[in-house]
Simulated assay, not measured.
Amino acid sequence: MIRVLIVDDQRLMREGLRTLLELEDGIFVVGVASDGSEVIEALVHQPDVILMDIRMPHVDGITATREVLLRQPHIKVLMLTTYDDRADVVGALSAGAVGYLLKDMPAESIAQGIREAVRGGAILPPTIAKTFLAAVHQQGGAVEPGASVPEPDKTALLTDRETQVLNCLAQGMSNREIGQYLHVTEGTVKNHVSNLIAKLSLRDRTQVALYAVRHGYGRLP
Rank of each mutant, 00 (worst) to 15 (best):
M1W: 10
I2A: 06
I2V: 13
V4Q: 01
V4N: 03
L5A: 11
V7Q: 03
R11V: 08
L12G: 15
M13G: 05
R14E: 13
E15R: 00
E15A: 08
E15N: 08
L17R: 00
R18K: 14
R18T: 15
E22Y: 11
G26S: 10
F28K: 00
G31A: 02
A33G: 03
E38Y: 13
A42S: 14
H45D: 07
D48N: 14
I50K: 00
V59Q: 05
G61D: 14
I62R: 01
I62T: 10
A64F: 11
R66A: 09
L69P: 12
R71M: 06
H74A: 01
H74R: 01
K76C: 15
L78N: 03
M79T: 15
Y83R: 00
Y83C: 03
D84S: 13
A87K: 10
G99P: 09
G99H: 12
Y100S: 03
A107V: 10
S109G: 02
G113F: 15
E116I: 08
G120R: 00
A122K: 01
A129I: 02
Q139I: 02
G140W: 14
V143H: 13
V143L: 13
E144M: 14
P145G: 13
P145C: 09
G146W: 04
G146C: 07
S148I: 03
E151G: 13
A156V: 09
L158S: 09
T159I: 04
D160H: 04
E162F: 10
Q164W: 12
N167M: 01
G172D: 13
V184T: 12
E186V: 13
T188W: 06
H192Q: 11
H192M: 06
I197S: 06
A198V: 15
L202Q: 07
R203H: 08
R203N: 06
D204F: 13
Y211A: 04
A212R: 00
G218T: 04
R219L: 08
R219P: 08
P221N: 04
P221Y: 06
